[in-house]
Design a protein around this nucleic acid. Sequence first.
RNA 1: GGCCCGAUAGCUCAGUCGGUAGAGCAGUGGAUUGAAAAUUCACGUGUCGGCGGUUCAAAUCCGUCUCGGGCCA
Length: 308
Amino acid sequence: MAKRAGTGDLKSGNILVPTRACDDRSVVTPYFICGPTASGKSAIALEMAEKLDGEIVNADAFQLYRGLEIVSAAPSALELARCPHHLYGILDPTESTDAQLYVNLAEPVITEIQARGKTPIITGGSGLYLKFLTHGAAPLPTADAVLRAKMDSQTLEELVLQLIELDPVEASRTALQNRRFVSRALEICILSDQKASDLRDGWEAKTAAISSNLRGIVIQRTRPDLHSRIALRTKTMLDEGAMEEVAALVDVSTNCEKAIGFREIRALLKGEIDRPTCEELINAATRQYAKRQETWFRRETWLTPQVA
RNA sequence: GGCCCGAUAGCUCAGUCGGUAGAGCAGUGGAUUGAAAAUUCACGUGUCGGCGGUUCAAAUCCGUCUCGGGCCA
């Protein structure tokens, strides 16, 4: 395992690449394949796996789930057979997950692949998960379900006032209209009994140098191309069992039920909407998601754009 | 053929007493460190169906034509 010097208490994001200092050639640098949904990451990942003698590691928040294969557009059995795949269908739909949990799952898998002398091909579109994996997590307390439930019952204004009182600096940096961001900042203050602004402060500087040692691509397509691929995929999903899949998912975590298509297909199953409406709702949600992903990956300048 | 209703942003529609128009959705751009397929911010010029007319001024009133939808023949 290569440990980067000078990253201090960074828990992760520093074990994946050889350090420049020792230039450890025995560690195989992972290869990242990113891009918006429906851009064709899986196909390229398979190609790369064959070219680089690699194994594929999932970086998609919803393909982690078992029983959500069709809706989450996970690799098919045929694709899975072409090379070793990791972290697909490993969570129960009743479970929740988060970025740190993902890293905890992914890091051992990646180092193990490296230990076998194979190339980890990390592919997926969950920007935050990838960011945690590549750049590590700030030393912050983990989410607390009880506290979150309590905060969910408060108005945004109440939360904002509390944050301003506990940590005015963090409040000034936070988008105060964004309930998620406000409650997370507040949660950090309450759980750690420290200021979120202090805890987050040094972190960004520490991660600044990491990008230069990462390698990977971000797949780019024109919007019309991407939109037509999305429409085709939605149609295929619905034609090939997405309704049965959702019907079978009775007990799901609130996390899991946020999968695009889940609510829409449930409404279709209940007869609240018709098939064309369902398809269009899924398409629109997917297009919007793809746009957000493009915005996210645009900032990951270490990724080499690859026009598909 | 006669009568009635409608025609306004890509879509669905609002628009008061005449003062040249604005919502939702879609779309575009941004943010983003433990819910992220989440959450959130910003962005609205369009022959107001066409042509005439009245008026200082027409999406708005009048006439007429076109296209929908309905009712009566």
